[in-house]
């Protein structure tokens, strides 16, 4: 372990709660703070977009067409002559919402499912994990098309559909973590103390498995944002003139030689988000390293 972390740990001894300690330690990680700041900035922009966007998001200028960045349009325009900056700002609203909410859905289901399966073991574990296998194997596309026929097109369905696929891998990772933790002394101690399984999972297993879970979560958010674009092609998801980063990127990819800026800037927004998430994720992981803190 590197030196700064040891001082962190020493400091943490005096802390009152796990989360307060974590926050204190997180604040010392400059990259994590930077990541958090960038994310907060994006979220703030997304919230304020209707008031601060330079143009209307549907405002076209067909004769102008696709133009590179200029004084009037800082990030250029798309083939309809729409301002790209405005598109990215509005797209961010959709993408951030989808990314965070759908991932949260996946996280809650996946972690709970994996933790219960891994903790219980035996028949329950087998049954739960085989269900995961079944869901992996079903043809996702047909499933989405059917969902739309039954429920119509709406955003709630979008979150559910994405959450429904993304939780599977999360559950597998959580289960493998819990399985290995369950054999460790501190869990066995907790069991012999007579704590209920729910308490053990919540208080001991989940916090200890947080590292890989946080990491996987930070990776899931961008892939969810791109999955949203695929679902939009199937007819679920946002409809034009509304847009999202995923859609902007996939349209940008079609004309990457002719209008590279249409790809570059939405891609940059996604990349910045991703890197911020990862730095924040790493920082969180280090900050929440309870095992380290207990030594």
């Amino acid at each position: 372990m590197s030196a700064p972390l040891i001082t962190d740990i020493a400091q943490a001894e005096q802390g009152t709660s796990l989360w307060r300690d974590a926050w204190l330690r997180l604040r010392r990680n400059r990259l994590a703070v930077l990541g958090l700041a960038v994310l907060c900035f994006f979220v703030l922009v997304a919230l304020l977009t209707p008031w601060i966007a330079p143009y209307g998001y549907a405002q076209q200028n067909l004769e102008l067409g696709a133009t590179p960045p200029s004084a009037a349009h800082w990030l250029g325009t798309d083939i309809f002559g729409r301002d790209l900056l405005t598109q990215i700002m509005y797209g961010g609203r959709v993408s951030l919402a989808v990314g965070f909410i759908a991932t949260a859905v996946a996280l809650v289901i996946g972690v709970t499912w994996g933790a219960i399966a891994g903790y219980a073991g035996g028949k329950l574990d087998a049954a739960m994990m085989r269900l995961v296998d079944i869901l992996y194997a079903l043809p996702f596309m047909i499933f989405i098309v059917l969902l739309m026929v039954v429920f119509g097109r709406n955003m709630l369905l979008l979150f559910l559909a994405i959450g429904a696929v993304e939780w599977l891998t999360m559950a597998r990772i959580m289960r493998s973590q819990v399985q290995s933790l369950r054999q460790q002394e501190f869990v066995e101690a907790a069991i012999s103390l007579g704590l209920s399984p729910a308490t053990i999972i919540r208080r001991h297993l989940v916090p200890n498995a947080l590292g890989p879970i946080i990491v996987y979560t930070t990776l899931t958010i961008p892939s969810v944002m791109l999955l949203e674009a695929f679902l939009s092609f199937l007819g679920l998801g946002v409809q034009p003139p509304q847009t999202s980063w995923g859609l902007l990127i996939s349209y940008g990819a079609e004309s990457l030689e002719e209008y590279p800026w249409l790809l570059l800037y939405p891609g940059l927004a996604l990349t910045l988000t991703l890197f911020s998430l990862n730095f924040l994720g790493d920082g969180l992981r280090d900050a929440l390293d309870v095992r380290g803190a207990k030594d």
């Binding site: 549907a58 076209q60 309809f80 097109r153 409809q239 034009p240 003139p241």
Partner: peptide
Amino acid sequence: AVALQQMWKDALNIDVTLAN
């Protein structure tokens, strides 16, 4: 569809939603 949607909005002030 996106171009026509806007033409209808501009010319007739009516909303047309798109469903792919």
